[in-house]
Amino acid sequence: MSGLDAYALLRPWWLLAVPVIALLALRAASRAAPLGDWAKAVDPALMALMARRGAVLGGRRQANLAAAVAAGLVALALTGPAVERKDAATFRNLDATVIVADLSRSVTEGGGLKDLRQTAQGVAEAAGTRSVALVVYAGDAYLAVPPTTDRDSFGTTLFALDADTVPDRGSHPERGLALARRTLGEAGVVAADVVLITDGDGIGEAALREARAIREQGWRLQGLFVPAQVSLPAGAPKPDRAALDQVVAAGGGTAADLASPAPVLDAVGASTAQHLAAGGYTVLAFADLGRWLLLLAMVPALILFRRSA
């Protein structure tokens, strides 16, 4: 994680107000020198007479500048500049990762099982100190490892997976996703990544419904595609990357290949504060500094109330 990850703009769309304020300030400054449009509206002779009698007060550029500075600071305050709270890491129990591994025939006989295990281990390591669970599925789904921070026991179970781990034939990713969602719900997790590692077989409308349900909970579904590395037996399902992309899009996450999993690892490896903020729990993760900018905006605003002698 880079140092910039500790900073954020909670309401970045307010940045659009800054150039608008700058344009309005320039326009106001041009019209305030020295009397705005009064010089055009009043007869020149009458204006000269009034000036000699001391009845004409010139425009003040300072007031326009002070108003522009105050408005600009207010706009910047509304963007919500924030820093990550020092205690954000203490909320890691609210942030978890569930790996959903496809152990159907097309994966185990397609030569991708070894890479699947290695990449799943990489996902667990990317999660850092947060808890990780493992769900495996084929014809049915099982919780192989409940949420844990013990990477040694997790790795032991992970590398023991083989073609006979799930006795049920078939491929039902929706059952794996449903079990992942239930596991997160029972743990009271508020920010989570569900990482589906599959060749795309069996993904249909039921899996899409589960992906949307995961997204509605404020969690994200990431996907890693397992390509076939050997010729599959006759009648075996073929890998389907397009299906994986579709279900991941429904889950609001990122899809990648096993050979280049960096986008998914980066998403899982983001800080707890970033995950909480993405899940709508920004107040737990970041301290909003906008209030201090509002106090600073009061300084030029006070100039607007200064009375001339």
Rank of each mutant, 00 (worst) to 15 (best):
P233I: 00
P233R: 00
P233E: 00
A234G: 14
G235Q: 07
G235M: 05
A236Y: 06
P237E: 05
P237D: 04
P237A: 05
P237Y: 02
K238S: 15
K238P: 00
K238Y: 01
K238I: 05
K238V: 10
P239E: 08
D240H: 13
D240W: 08
R241I: 09
R241K: 15
R241H: 10
A242L: 09
A242W: 07
A242I: 04
A242K: 14
A243D: 00
A243Q: 02
A243P: 00
A243E: 00
L244H: 07
L244I: 09
L244P: 08
L244F: 11
D245Y: 11
D245N: 14
D245W: 11
D245E: 14
Q246F: 03
Q246A: 15
Q246K: 15
Q246I: 02
Q246P: 02
Q246C: 01
V247C: 08
V247D: 02
V247E: 03
V247I: 14
V247M: 10
V247A: 10
V248L: 10
A249F: 06
A249Y: 09
A249L: 08
A249H: 13
A250V: 05
A250D: 01
G251Q: 07
G251E: 06
G251H: 11
G251M: 11
G251Y: 13
G251T: 09
G252M: 09
G252Y: 02
G252K: 07
G253N: 07
G253T: 08
G253V: 08
G253D: 08
G253W: 09
T254V: 15
T254R: 06
T254Y: 04
T254N: 03
T254P: 06
T254S: 10
A255V: 15
A255M: 07
A255N: 06
A256R: 06
A256H: 07
A256P: 03
A256Y: 05
A256D: 05
A256F: 09
D257P: 08
D257S: 15
D257E: 14
L258D: 13
L258A: 12
L258W: 13
A259M: 06
A259G: 14
S260K: 15
S260E: 12
S260F: 14
S260I: 03
P261Y: 09
P261G: 08
P261L: 04
A262N: 12
A262V: 11
A262P: 07
A262H: 11
A262T: 14
A262I: 04
P263V: 03
P263T: 07
P263W: 13
P263K: 05
V264S: 03
V264R: 05
V264Q: 04
L265G: 11
L265K: 12
L265H: 12
L265I: 10
D266Y: 08
D266A: 15
D266L: 14
A267Y: 01
V268F: 01
V268W: 06
